[in-house]
């Protein structure tokens, strides 16, 4: 007799349908089903469905793959930053937060799919929290004002141990207001703030990231605040704002390009 005392569960039934059970467990589950004809009928229907679904979709996987999907062809076509995808970007967590969407329409960003994650990154959480704290600040939104930009850049770069730049977003209607230093665990983070003629504010948060290499561009939303984040070259970036994600993405693309020293992508119509 089998020594497995665990009662039969839903997971066993799925395991049976999908053929994932050990022989001994399978025998036990099948014996259980013989005493439960109603459930056995459902399992039988589920198995039939599984086979129909597989049969229906199998021909697609048996086709010859289109030449455009060959890795070599994709590599040779690799698009610059202005392409359909926002490639993953660069140095320090830059968090761009847009506050107050007064008078703004979303610019249609047609071909730039975004990546949605179920969970947000720690950097994104910190950036959104900083955004909420400082964007509403009327008197001291920044520690060092933009008219002291050389000092701001030198100071933040020194504290982060990485070159911090202040992307020029005037083409998108945003002027640099200034920046501040924030704690980030045992490290430091930099936050830049921008605003436009409508009083809409952006904050750009950056810090040394947890990983090397590049990650995909990520979108997150927390209540009315949206954020884009990415990691590149040991730094992480997040873009957050009270705005539609199309506009936020357009600004984030510009930040990404400038941080990496690439040409600024044209503004989306």
């Amino acid at each position: 007799m089998s020594g497995d005392p665990r009662p039969v569960g839903e997971d066993d039934l799925h395991g049976l349908i999908d053929g994932r059970l050990e022989p001994e467990r399978q025998a036990l589950v099948e014996a259980w089903l013989r005493g439960n004809p109603a459930r056995a009928a459902e399992v039988s229907a589920d198995r039939a469905l599984r086979e129909r679904l597989r049969a229906r979709l199998a021909p697609i996987a048996e086709e010859a793959i289109p030449a455009r999907l060959r890795v070599a062809n994709i590599r040779s076509r690799h698009r610059p930053i202005t392409g359909r995808w926002l490639p993953v970007a660069a140095a320090a967590v830059l968090c761009l937060a847009v506050g107050g969407a007064a008078g703004w329409f979303g610019h249609a960003v047609r071909q730039v799919p975004t990546v949605t994650l179920a969970r947000t990154e720690p950097a994104t959480d910190d950036a959104v929290a900083a955004f909420r704290t400082y964007v509403v600040e009327a008197v001291h939104p920044v520690e060092v004002r933009a008219d002291e930009k050389p000092h701001l850049v030198t100071w933040l770069s020194k504290r982060l141990g990485r070159a911090v730049t202040t992307p020029d977003l005037t083409a998108y209607g945003f002027r640099l207001m200034g920046g501040r230093l924030l704690p980030a665990g045992s490290e430091s983070a930099a936050m830049l703030m921008y605003d436009d003629d409508h009083g809409t504010r952006l904050t750009l948060y950056s810090r040394v990231g947890d990983a090397d290499g590049r990650t995909v561009f990520r979108f997150a939303r927390e209540g009315d605040v949206a954020a884009f984040s990415w990691v590149d070259g040991g730094m992480s970036y997040v873009v957050t704002g009270r705005t539609d994600e199309a506009r936020l993405l357009t600004v984030a693309q510009a930040v990404d390009a400038q941080v990496r020293g690439l040409p600024v992508p044209p503004r989306q119509p």
Binding site: L69, V71, I74, R75, H78, R79, W85, P87, V88, A211, D212, G213, R214, T215, V216, V231
Partner: peptide, 11 residues
């Protein structure tokens, strides 16, 4: 595939 190639080193 494009995304996978660009993120290959980071996986």
């Amino acid at each position: 595939l494009e995304r996978a190639l660009s993120g290959w080193s980071g996986r």
